[in-house]
Design a protein around this nucleic acid. Structure first.
Lengths: 204, 204
DNA sequence: GAGAAAATCATGGAAAAAGGGGAGACGCAA
DNA sequence: TTGCGTCTCCCCTTTTTCCATGATTTTCTC
């Protein structure tokens, strides 16, 4: 059986690289590529692949959102996330949105073909590095409240508690409380570390 | 005349993509690839290409540093920077360290071949997007000293001035001075904004 | 409608960072 | 040799953050 494969990535070289890698695989049929989310959706309107390799960083919508949309419209398609970044929050989000696998862009030919084979069986494929990352902070996903997110963003913009209080029409002490909760949730002991971790995990 | 070309990139797909793209070019001879800086240097010990396509993000040393090293040891080699990120600071540093060109990873086949041809003539090639970024004077390249980089990283790790001073065997007031200079260079007024901008521009 | 979670506000004190100065020592390059 | 940049150090003041502790109201959820 032949697996029809499609790729969405805004990097020409990556597309070409994968095409070249999969060229010799008789079990894989190359359906083509899209370089952004909208042309991907346009393509899916006409033809339906079995597997989509999907980059996380796209010019129009993020791959994470695209993944959700595609999975909603075409639940039968298997999606494999594709990214340079081995970051817990991205992988997690991608999987939450219905992806069946996650492969890094430094993957070998074997990794890609086995990823495609695995997800075609309905199983989940995570590249070793990706699953290590997921294991590391095993599900310790930090959940922020609406207010905490707002405050976090304003902190990152360089505003002081007093300025944030004014902006949100709340007391300075309240902002201080939110700030303390943020430090506690991220298990950091000061603003510098808080912002760094928040950025690296995709909260900013 | 045939241009001997070598590539350093830790992403297998990118290597494969470029190899595939350049395969049909008769004027270009593919010498091979390295996936990190040290094996690149090991290769150069034995053979010398005309052009090296060099990724900025490498596992061991940054491409920026590798560029400097290669150019010092082998001034005759032309180096073309290669990156996903269209970020002014990176491009600037790469060019400062002796690169002859800069191409983004979403480049087309034509772009790559013409980049190689251009630098072989001793000229500079910047992909359109890259040169646009350079033209924009809004992101005046922030150049950090060795010490400032160290201090910045330790700040981002959540250390206080006192802790940093102890770690670097310098006075707290000195750390404070570096910190003030960092705030001034990044034009930020507190740690939060400093870290956010530093991360987003790739200094962390 | 009860209970949980979130958002709000407060006091008071310790620690750290920010802002403003000034200044000497060193190396490197024009 | 004379700058220039870097690294080093110090003073003082104000601002801001961090920490501990406690409490009330609003909002969501079962």
């Amino acid at each position: 059986m032949v697996t029809k494969t499609f790729i969405v990535d805004d990097h020409y070289m990556v597309i070409e690289g994968i095409r070249s890698l999969l060229q010799n695989e008789k079990s894989i049929e190359w359906m083509g590529h899209a370089m952004n989310a909208s042309s991907c959706l346009a393509f899916l309107n006409k033809q339906l692949p079995d597997v989509i390799l999907m980059d996380i960083n796209l010019p129009d919508i993020s791959g994470i959102d695209l993944c959700k949309e595609v999975k909603t419209k075409y639940p039968s398609v298997f999606i494999i996330g594709l990214s340079t970044f081995n970051q817990q929050s991205f992988i997690q989000k991608m999987m939450d949105n219905g992806a069946s696998g996650y492969v890094l862009k430094n993957a070998t030919q074997d990794e890609i073909t086995s990823a495609i084979e695995t997800v075609m069986k309905g199983k989940t494929y995570l590249s070793e590095e990706a699953s290590n990352t997921l294991r590391k902070d095993n599900g310790a996903a930090i959940i922020l409240t609406r207010r905490e997110k707002e405050v976090l963003e304003l902190i990152a913009d360089g505003m002081t508690n007093a300025e944030i209080a004014q902006k949100l029409f709340i007391s300075v002490t309240t902002v201080d409380t939110h700030r303390k909760n943020l430090l506690a949730k991220f298990e950091t002991k000061n603003t510098a570390a808080l912002i760094k971790i928040a950025v690296s995990r995709g909260y900013l």
